[in-house]
Design a binder for these strands. Structure first.
Length: 468
DNA sequence: AAAAAAC
């Protein structure tokens, strides 16, 4: 047991249903994290809460347990809505809520995001749901079509609340909030809150309780380095040198534009790195597949816009590289928070040109630390090879491990996730070095997410890399 | 001023 866990409070001290407590125990959630211990009592009393806690501090379970406790499962109406700023985050939150709700009978949790066909969503909605997790655009569209009824909503959650409250989401958010009862409970959660969001937040909430736990990242677990580069070609050379020096198995490179993300990913791939781009211009199925390959460790370097800055929960991310320094200071905090999660150590390197020096100064003031430019590490990277992911193994039911190769078809499995209906069947096929559920009856996308989460109708299914 | 999010 970790020393700080000694005085931590147990979930059993809260007025939670026995099914929830049993499930928490089976999930290995022993004690509450600080943000859970501070926010759950007011949440369970029905109060509005503005929660602030560093990335990976357990915010999802905090509001998740709150909203699940507020459900009346016998009423088949949408009683809780969670809004997220990216589709990937919404999917991840829905998955975590399903994990938390596992032992509650018949709780229906639906993810509604753009980039996926409307038809299946309309069909699912017609069968009813208790909890909806989604992105603003698609939720607004369902409201316009009257396919989603929020008049019985009891709990509204804004995840990554400061992003949800900024200008770009304003119109959609207002339309959605207007469709909910004013008597609802409203919960805001984020690692950062810019100054501009406070007044907007105050208007949405009623006498909110402010819960704040260690506002930013854990400085001890993330080593930050700043390196000066002369010009744009110098940036790419510096990045490739850093990748050869640290040789991270999994790392994210953040760029400030989609275009640059694509260029850098292409250049790295041409130089022999296992790199792919992730940004909002890509098809959703490409975004999903890239993230799954990254999680499976068949892809080593993810070159991304800030679509991946928040929430993205990939464990064992060794390093974050900022190709440019982020435009917003809060975003920098979210980006580097992708590494060093759950106590693991991580490194965050930021490339800075002379022109961007003023951003470094602002960051210094924001973080309240002295940030010094260091020379690039690793004098002798010339002879080093880029990190290459190896062959993967597939393990089903903790049984015999199977080696998998590109093109292999491993057989059929029934998918038991409650997001899918009936007897939809997918074949596990291997593309590249990652396991993949082949397209059959158009369910590939959801089946993919389920496979990577390790759930296939009672079977535990895990994709691992061999060696090292 | 860029990114995200709707077809």
């Amino acid at each position: 047991m970790r020393p700080e866990a000694r005085h931590a409070k147990a979930f059993s001290s809260l007025p939670l249903a026995a099914e929830l407590l049993d499930n928490l125990e089976s999930l290995g959630y022993l004690a509450m994290t600080p943000i859970q211990a501070a926010s759950l009592p007011p949440i369970l009393r029905g109060q509005d809460v503005i929660g602030q806690g560093k990335t990976g501090s357990g915010k999802t379970a905090a509001f998740g347990l709150g909203l699940l406790s507020a459900l009346d499962v016998s009423r088949f109406q949408v009683q809780a809505l969670v809004l997220c700023p990216t589709r990937e985050l919404a999917d991840q939150v829905a998955e975590e809520l399903r994990r938390l709700a596992r032992m509650l009978a018949n709780v229906k949790i639906l993810a509604l995001c753009g980039g996926t066909p409307l038809g299946p969503q309309l069909n699912s909605l017609s069968h009813g749901a208790h909890v909806v997790v989604g992105t603003p655009g698609r939720i607004e569209e369902h409201l316009r079509k009257a396919s989603l009824d929020l008049s019985s909503l009891a709990v509204l959650v804004l995840d990554e609340a400061d992003r949800m409250l900024d200008m770009g989401f304003q119109a959609a958010l207002e339309a959605i909030v207007a469709a909910t009862p004013t008597a609802r409970q409203t919960l805001l959660f984020s690692a950062t809150y810019g100054d501009s969001v406070r007044p907007v937040a105050e208007r949405m909430l009623r006498e909110p309780v402010n819960v704040e736990v260690d506002s930013t990242h854990d400085e001890r677990s993330i080593r930050q380095h700043f390196h000066q580069v002369a010009d744009e070609p110098g940036r790419l050379a510096a990045l490739s040198r850093l990748l050869l020096h640290y040789r991270p198995e999994s790392s994210v490179v953040f760029c400030n534009t989609r275009r640059e993300t694509q260029t850098v990913a292409d250049e790295l791939a041409a130089a022999g790195f296992s790199a792919q781009a992730l940004h909002g211009d890509l098809e959703q199925r490409d975004r999903d597949q890239t993230l799954i390959r990254f999680a499976n460790k068949s892809l080593s370097v993810l070159v991304a816009t800030d679509v991946a800055a928040r929430g993205l929960d990939i464990d064992a991310l060794d390093a974050v590289f900022n190709y440019q320094i982020a435009r917003e200071l809060e975003v920098h905090v979210h980006r580097i928070g992708r590494t060093g999660r759950a106590g693991a150590s991580g490194v965050a390197c930021t490339l800075v040109t002379e022109k961007e020096a003023y951003r470094l100064e602002r960051l210094e003031a924001f973080l309240g630390e002295t940030l010094t430019l260091e020379p690039l590490p690793g004098r002798s990277t010339a002879s080093r090879e880029p990190f290459k992911p190896r062959m993967a193994t597939l393990q089903i039911d903790a049984g015999k491990k199977q080696k998998i190769r590109p093109g292999d078809v491993l057989g059929a499995l029934t998918n038991g996730d409650n997001a899918l209906s009936g007897d939809q069947v997918g074949k596990i096929k291997v593309l590249d070095r990652s396991a993949y559920v082949a397209v059959e009856r158009g369910i590939a996308q959801q089946a993919l997410a389920t496979l990577s989460a390790g759930k296939l109708k009672g079977r535990s299914c895990r994709v691992r890399r061999i060696g090292r």
